[in-house]
Amino acid sequence: MNDLPMRPSRGFLTLLYKELLRFWKVSAQTIAAPVLTALLYLVIFSHVLSTHTKIHGVPYTAFLIPGLVMMSVLQNAFANTSSSLIQSKITGNLVFVLLPPISHNEFFSAYVLAAVARGFTVGAGVLLATIWFGSLNYAAPLWIGVFAILGGAIMATLGMLAGIWAEKYDQLAAFQNFLIMPLTFLSGVFYSIASLPSFWQSISRWNPVFYMIDGFRYGFFGVSDISPWHSLWVGLLSFTILAALTLHSLRRGYKLRD
């Protein structure tokens, strides 16, 4: 009866395509808006602080640009998975993905890859929009790519967990406001943690987002608060733990299948 040409990987590829198309179709909201927000941050902060501050010998505006790029990558990767899942759950159209023969691993990979792609797109947009305001060195470009992918994947996975757990938009907003915002804002986007009192430095070291931004910035300037290798291991460990939790939830059908 089913004589149509089939390929096992087509389900994964289609889900990835659908998730990419979903954010691309509303790119004014999902790409242009966060680029504009980051640009406003740069204009305001650099105007106020650039004449006063140098961090690791780097002018403040130049120091700020990689932080804003990475913050955009992280926040948008989180937003993509979490908003896609919660919208599908609330409108009920998640059944279109739950009924087909898509495995837990494919489901996870498609959502995370699409979210990383959105993070990358917004990050590239922010970089393009802000690059004219400060001089960047690109001292270790490989690290730039590694931390952008790893940071995006961590936040995309966290977004999946939030989207699976939340049943209402306000629950997701709480997750975003009380966890994601503090994690990203208190992670060295706007400053070096070396400038913080020792207590807050210790707190920052428990924040995996700090390592992602610090490592990403190392790729531009070749200097950082922490060794990029150390940051890489923290990032990999964080991703592994979150991915294991998410895959376990998907396998059990937690809050997705009754």
Partner: peptide, 10 residues
């Protein structure tokens, strides 16, 4: 088309 793709149909 998306739904067909979910079921593995090229």
């Amino acid at each position: 088309e998306i739904q067909a793709g979910y079921y593995g149909i090229d």
